[in-house]
């Protein structure tokens, strides 16, 4: 018989694979603004938060921010920016979901994640790379984009949760 733990482990691995492959895939999607990506890999992390639990989401977030730069190049710069931002966004989304689960859907959780993600990215860039407050001039524009793309990934997560009830059912054995 399968124990709940092995199911959880398998599901975490599945979401990690999904997250990493979406992260690599989205580097091929060009958006009109240079340097901006949709953040599709956030879908995997949010599914983890909604279906499994926070530790699983953190494992997936770490795997994503190490493996995606490894596969797409420019390792050190991308990793140093991506790791703190992804972790902060994951924690912020977890907190947001924990507090407002009864009143919100993944749509707003995604945009909160995008918002925190971009702010932490700029904070890291300001402190490690371009040490000038002038870099914050760009922040409002990127925040706007980030909230919108976060809402898009949130909506995708919502659709997955709504249309594939089997995904959440398989964890019901251990979920409180």
């Amino acid at each position: 018989m399968q124990s709940p733990d092995s199911k959880k482990l398998a599901l975490t691995g599945l979401f990690a694979a999904l997250t990493v492959s979406l992260g690599v895939f989205e580097t091929f999607i060009a958006l009109p603004v240079p340097g901006v990506r949709i953040g599709l890999s956030n879908v995997g992390i949010m599914l983890c938060l909604y279906i499994i639990d926070l530790p699983a989401a953190i494992y997936v977030a770490i795997a994503k921010s190490i493996l995606v730069p490894l596969l797409t190049g420019n390792l050190i710069v991308k990793m140093s920016i991506s790791l703190p931002a992804t972790l902060a966004a994951t924690l912020a989304m977890a907190l947001f979901i924990f507090i407002t689960i009864k009143h919100t859907s993944p749509l707003s959780a995604g945009s909160v994640g995008g918002f925190v993600h971009i702010i932490v990215q700029f904070f890291v860039v300001k402190n490690l790379y371009i040490k000038s407050d002038a870099i914050y001039n760009l922040l409002p524009y990127f925040t706007l984009f980030s909230v919108l793309t976060g809402a898009i990934t949130g909506y995708i997560t919502l659709l997955i949760l709504r249309n594939f009830p089997g995904v959440s059912k398989c964890t019901s054995t251990y979920k409180k």
Binding site: T104, S105, L107, S108, V112, T143, L144, V147, L158, L161
Partner: peptide, 19 residues
């Protein structure tokens, strides 16, 4: 799971700040 009023409020708030 449905999109709620609260969702729209949160997103609007997050858009108003950068604007």
């Amino acid at each position: 799971m449905k999109i709620t009023k609260f969702d729209i409020i949160v997103i609007c708030l997050l858009i108003i700040i950068p604007l």
